[in-house]
């Protein structure tokens, strides 16, 4: 079941598109589910399919095509580290290394307490701020140094 909050958000999104193009809201709908639950389960996809009147398989295609959707739980805070060229040149390797040391997990893994997960990202379109990661696809943290990473993690630890 989609929560009332998600339905409200989807309904708002639907206003952007012609009335007979409800499918256009599928990307947003999946995003709302992920924002609420941290990841998207097949049941959520079925619910979205039903709500938007589209085939389940079409939702599944979308959910698996776009890489920012979590198809499994990725922790309360998913840190997506850009490792593309500009970031690589500016030390994204060190960023990953530091996260690995601090959190004890590698790419695609989640800490035992379920608090953090790390994913590898492709170019975020913010290369001048390299190296960077995003938190839950909402907030970009750039020009990372080990000290800055520690600060960010300390903030998140508190929440």
């Amino acid at each position: 079941m989609l929560s009332q909050q998600i339905i409200t958000l989807i309904d708002k999104e639907l206003k952007k598109y012609p009335a007979d193009q409800r499918q256009s809201a599928v990307m947003a709908a999946l995003r709302f589910v992920q924002d609420e639950k941290g990841w998207i389960a097949p049941d959520d996809m079925s619910d979205i399919a039903e709500y938007l009147g589209m085939p389940q398989m079409a939702v599944f295609e979308v959910a698996t095509f776009y890489h920012m959707y979590n198809l499994k739980p990725m922790g309360q805070y998913t840190l997506t580290v850009c490792t593309n060229l500009s970031c690589q040149l500016c030390g994204s390797g060190d960023t990953l290394e530091h996260l690995h040391k601090r959190l004890g997990i590698g790419l695609g893994e989640v800490t035992a307490n379920g608090k953090y997960g790390i994913r590898e990202g492709e170019c975020m379109g913010a290369c001048v701020d390299a190296p960077m990661f995003s938190i839950n696809n909402k907030q970009l943290c750039g020009r990372l140094t080990n000290e800055k990473i520690d600060q960010i993690l300390a903030e998140l630890d508190k929440q």
């Binding site: 996809m45 079925s46 085939p55 389940q56 398989m57 079409a58 295609e61 698996t64 095509f65």
Partner: peptide, 20 residues
């Protein structure tokens, strides 16, 4: 008339499959 199969994932990982 019914999308019972799709091509999920992308690139080299693309796979023809059914939902769940």
């Amino acid at each position: 008339g019914q999308m019972e199969l799709g091509q999920a994932f992308r690139g080299e990982h693309a796979e023809v499959m059914s939902f769940v």
